[in-house]
Structures are given as C-alpha cells and as structure tokens.
Amino acid sequence: MQETLEKILQTYHESEGNVISLLQEIEESFGYLPEDAINWFSEQLDIPPSRFYGIATFYAQFHLKPRGENIITACCGTACHVKGAEKLINSLMRELQIPSGEDTSEDRKFTVEKVNCVGACSIAPVVIINKEVHGKMTADRLMKEIRKIK
C-alpha cells in the first residue's frame, strides 16, 4: 500500500496540486478511498483531512467503503428512465440479493450503482457491466449477462 501511496504522491505534484485528481488516483488504485490513505496524504501534504472528506462525499465518483468485484452501473438518464431503467435495477437487486438501502451484495461480489445519463440515449436503456456498455437492455438479457460472471 505504502508504495502505491508514494507513487500517487508523485502524480499529485505533477497535476498542479489538485486534490480531486489525487482522490481520483486513490479511488482508481484501491477501488475506494481508505481512511488510512486519506490521513497519510493529509499529513504529507498538510491539508486538513476534513477537506478531503468534504470533497470525497461531495462527488458521486468517490466511495468510502470497499465495493464489489463486479460493478454494474445502470444509467438513469431521461431516455433510460422512460425506457424502464428502474425495472432493470429492481430485477438486479433481487437477483443479486442486495439488501435495500445498500449497493453491494454481502459477499462483495457485486455492486449495483445508478449513474446520471451516460450519454448513450439512443440505445436506452443502458447498463454498464464492468465498464462494458450494453445498450437496449432487457431484464432477460441482463440476467443472462449477470449469470455469466456470477
């Protein structure tokens, strides 16, 4: 972990001291923002941890808890909404047995997240499974895709 942190610290200096870029690097490396990492950077850079926390909780991209191995992102843009995104999400939550109010299954294999319009409206509804965009999704097809990686 230490090695990764040091490396990120380097890029921080290169990106003109941008705290958000730094947090993006941490998120990219660990899949979430570990508290220890934040505190370490806070000390190294003499930036109050409160500032990191304020930013981390402001932007939707950052997560403070570890996430699932597989990330399923359902677009909730207008077009996807009109074409039944909610139904897809409900069926996903049922299939993966994710308790209501949570976004990650108990075995941490799956995280289901909603995202604002990904800008692929003409192929709505859109679901992104591990960074791969799937358009014109149906509940049936979605379940097939999920079972492939389950």
Binding site: I20, R51, A60, V115, N116
Partner: peptide, 23 residues
C-alpha cells in the same frame, strides 16, 4: 481535468471551484 460526478459543476463558478480542487 476529469469531473468527479457532480452535475452542479456544469455551473461556471462551481466548475472553477472543482478545477481548483474544492467542493
């Protein structure tokens, strides 16, 4: 500069705050 997922950052002054590394 990559946005980090906040619609309000489309607003000019919020966008500037974000590039400066703030909420």
């Amino acid at each position: 500069k990559l946005g980090a997922g906040a619609f309000v950052c489309g607003e000019e002054t919020a966008l500037i705050a974000s590039i400066e590394g703030n909420r």
